[in-house]
Amino acid sequence: MDKDNKAGSKGRGWVRPVVGVALLSMLVCGLAFPLLVTGVAQALFPYQANGEVATLNGQAVGSYLIDNSFTLPYFFHARPANESASGVDPDITLQEAYSQIPGIANATGIPSSQLTGLVQKNEEGVFWIFGTPYVDVLKLNLALIAMDPAYYQSRVPALSGS
């Protein structure tokens, strides 16, 4: 960047556009554009723009897009963190969901057929000829809680108010 003093006026001639375009592009692309998108996003799609936050009894309990780390036996579980690429994979395959049904039925007393129905009802991911079927673990478990609130009342910290 130091074409130094050899060509005085010519030197100044290119410094101004180089520095000017660098600064302008930073303001427009690095500041104005992301802030514009933020404004539009917050106005049009606030739920998605803020991370698809899931609530239980009016309380934020996580995001549908991020693994909620279920460990208790009366819930569906995601894969261990390091088995996915992101470490926060919120979804499991249908087979994985079905394989967990006997354990949950055992722990909760909810009939397996109802749990199977719940998994089927929450299946997503396939559209036309594209995609691959899966279930969102947090969605599934919130539906599970809604199915038998009395049972989960004492077992879920978010419900028991602790």
């Binding site: 992301p34 802030l35 998108v37 933020t38 539009v40 996003a41 917050q42 049009l44 799609f45 998605q48 723009a49 803020n50 991370g51 698809e52 936050v53 239980l56 309380q59 934020a60 309990v61 996580g62 995001s63 897009l65 909620n68 780390s69 279920f70 819930f75 947090l138 478990n141 919130l142 809680i145 879920v156 910290p157 978010a158």
Partner: peptide, 18 residues
């Protein structure tokens, strides 16, 4: 954003999981 990609500058959100 419509498909679910966030866009906000309000900081990471702290929550308590289920």
């Amino acid at each position: 954003v419509f498909l679910g990609v966030p866009q906000t500058i309000s900081g990471y959100r702290a929550v308590t999981t289920v």
